[in-house]
Write a protein that binds this DNA or RNA. Sequence first.
DNA 1: TAGATTGTTAATCGATTAACAATC
DNA 2: TAGATTGTTAATCGATTAACAATC
Lengths: 224, 224
Amino acid sequence: MADPLRQPPGDKLAPKAVIGRVSLYLRQLEASQRQGQPTISSSQLGAALGIGDAQVRKDLAFFGQFGYPGIGYRIEELIAALRRILGIDRIWPTAMIGLGNLGRALIKYRGFRSRGFHIVALFDNDPKKMGQTHSGLTVRPLEDLARTTSELGIELAILSVPAEAAQRVADQIVACGILGILNFAPVPLNVPPTVGVMAVDLSVQLEHLAYKVLNGQGGISHAG
Amino acid sequence: MADPLRQPPGDKLAPKAVIGRVSLYLRQLEASQRQGQPTISSSQLGAALGIGDAQVRKDLAFFGQFGYPGIGYRIEELIAALRRILGIDRIWPTAMIGLGNLGRALIKYRGFRSRGFHIVALFDNDPKKMGQTHSGLTVRPLEDLARTTSELGIELAILSVPAEAAQRVADQIVACGILGILNFAPVPLNVPPTVGVMAVDLSVQLEHLAYKVLNGQGGISHAG
DNA sequence: TAGATTGTTAATCGATTAACAATC
DNA sequence: TAGATTGTTAATCGATTAACAATC
């Protein structure tokens, strides 16, 4: 799993904020590429995202030397490098756990699949949902999680169960050897340090928006 | 709209990170209250969320003095104060714009309504969707946005249209006088500084998760 | 009172921005 | 060469943590 090219010699872990911006850079680069642009400067790349040129260069420099002084960055080359750094130069077999309204919608959401996150199995504990089919996949009981995980090589889980069930299900997920959880349940999850968790909390986002509106603070906040 | 109690004398705007944590505090306080707890200390409050006691006190102190030395915080009182600070002590009439898979799911998502964000109108430009009903609301054409906004007093918009349409629709939203946008489209929006935007970018979150898994960085990242 | 816990100040840490020599 | 732009160092800024007098 270790990869000498993914991290600079110092081997320091990239700050959280850097990774978020790298995702944005990648998407902007893909847009510029679609328009036939061969190279891009740090100031061009940042301008579209409201990020300064020094910040762009510093972020990219964290992972290696990708630029050409006087020229900028070759878009195709940088896209390949960033996809590799972010780990989306591969397929991630992913389980969707919890098939309420949000879970069912997320199954159909195209943005995941186009980035390599393939939902390969659905889980829920509601007997009424068992055997239902969504997007060609059959809903399985949670007790099948361990077996299905090894059968299908599942590596990530998207968790959209009710808050009360979240920790219990997270424990099951961890026990199966799944290494990452995208958590939509509005509770912090307790997992071993070897397991990655990213929390997406829609109410928190909307509350932040309400605060900004009330306090007349405009502008763009990128929450990921 | 200005409210002398919402901000401390200095009138400084709360840092982004503080607001995010305040949302988490509020939810934790509500959980503690359901268990009948009357007061809570900063270390208790932080412990459940993985946040240090000094950080909790500093965050809360930003908005005023809520604690009692030797005792902690009175939960009921602090909940009321935080709801007020976040602006969720009221109803926010909200428009859902874009009724793809994600938009339709978000209509049904309970987490919004329970926080005071009431979806009162649906908009889409697809003629096939016009007149459809979801959760008791009829889909309207976007050209009705301005009229409906003033009729229903709409204040916020949840934007879940395709990336290509996002900026154009955002311009329409702004023109109607709506003051906040929760943006699910994977593009940065350009709006006047008087309009608040919070971006929710699911692919960015998942990419971050992939990075963490590949680089063996575990733990919990709260993205809001 | 003694024990607990706050609000706040000072110290530390990390992240962003500015500046510029090196490079194409 | 002259102009453009990088990668990196130093300076600035902001956020977190630690410590503690004040308070109940």
